[in-house]
Nucleic acid binder design. Structure first.
Lengths: 231, 231
DNA sequence: TTTTATGTGTCAAAAAAGTGACATCACTGT
DNA sequence: ACAGTGATGTCACTTTTTTGACACATAAAA
């Protein structure tokens, strides 16, 4: 599981701030919010974030000024910033790079759009991992992009959890995975699933992959392991 | 002497942009360059070109979105576009792009190769896209240019959204498309539609293509996938 | 044999997808 | 301007599938 990205929202309208926080959290980001530009600088001083959403119209120091101050800090100069602006506000200055904004969204905005833009920026430049990766061991073939699993050339239908579990075991082939680590990596960190539940999923997985079931080995007292290509 | 062809380069990296301009000019093209997708649209609005070289990773509006916007303009819908993409970037989206890139080049590229591709497309007169205008899978035939769909030789009338959705699924045949990604590529980023809306469109699409409905597979927890016609 | 860790069948709750109905909105032709 | 039409997006409700948890059966250590 990838580490969650941190986002700082600088917005004086409580409602908007709350709306943003709600949506960002829902999309899997850690979200912090402050009211003023000064607060923002103070906050950033101690805990840098991965992206900043900055309202243009703020009490005292406005968004532009705040942005400029942020850019002054060496370790913050490269942090992506998305401006929130009311319609008709000085879009020109934002667009013109003068301030090094990475994007801007006009209020009233749709949360979905904002989230998309945030994701676009966060993921910018990152190759799409996993996509089109095909894992193949023994008579087992797993195509991640297609979400297909073949056992001896025949397709086997796996559910999400089974699929994830299988992929993880394959990626860490040969190494024992404790139930705890499987929980961490296959399930959400926050989920409160019993470790024994994993056994149930392993059972189902073994049933479905039939002939290859033996490839998933039980390591008593430790966890499970996908057998390294047999000899 | 034939009139020189005009080419627009949309690229935010100054060096690459310069390199391109130099080589294109040397090969006898008129070359213009802009930094952002927005600039590109503005430029094209007043002076249409014969070909566009478009970086995928741009500040603010990315290459995909820019392409979508360009294709929206009637007089620009047919302009050939070559994408510049970093290795590992979403080639998938490019080849399967609903609005169709004409070609793409992976960075770092050799100027010579790019020039060759540019010439190939300019001289072809017709973009590569035309070759693939007709998608045919099983008993389903989709003619993109004519916006016609045949199921078992009989025409089926699809609405715009249904059509786009179908084409996208077909171009990415076999690969699972998440609702999110469908929203991104079939709808506009600014449009604010629920992911569940896609289900409704899928439903309607399935109804209309009748016998072939089964070709659109549901992948629980992930999205939809058009059945690969193998085995 | 006793103890402990896994394997398994079953079940209810939860999650995801299918579907029909309805409200809008943009167009069309009158 | 206005009713008529069809495309779209949302919702509420239904149906289907997946998941997590147990209780009990088994197999491995001690």
């Amino acid at each position: 599981m990838v580490k969650k990205k941190n986002i700082l929202v600088v917005e004086d309208d409580k409602n908007i701030s709350k709306l943003l926080r709600y949506n960002l959290e829902k999309s899997g980001f850690n979200c912090f919010s402050v009211i003023t530009g000064e607060d923002a600088l103070e906050f950033l001083d101690v805990s840098p974030v991965d992206l900043i959403i900055l309202d243009v119209m703020l009490p005292k120091m406005d968004g532009f000024e705040t942005c400029k101050q942020i850019r002054k800090e060496d370790n913050l100069a490269a942090v992506p910033i998305i401006f929130l602006t009311a319609k008709g506000e000085e879009v020109d200055r934002i667009v013109g790079f003068e301030l090094g904004a990475d994007d801007y969204v006009v209020k009233p905005f749709s949360p979905r759009e904002l989230i998309l833009r945030v994701k676009a920026i966060i993921n910018r430049g990152k190759p799409v991992e996993d996509d089109r990766t095909i894992l193949s061991v023994g008579n087992l073939v797993v195509d991640i992009a297609r979400h297909k699993v073949l056992v001896e050339k025949k397709e086997v239908l796996l559910t999400m959890m089974e699929f994830k579990l299988l992929v993880l075991l394959l990626k860490r082939i040969g190494r024992v995975q404790s139930r705890e680590s499987l929980l961490n990596d296959v399930w959400d960190i926050s989920s409160d699933v019993t470790t024994r539940t994993i056994d149930t999923h392993i059972k189902r997985l073994r049933q479905k992959i039939g002939r290859s079931a033996g490839m998933i080995e039980t390591v008593r007292g430790l966890g499970y392991r996908f057998k390294d290509d047999e000899e």
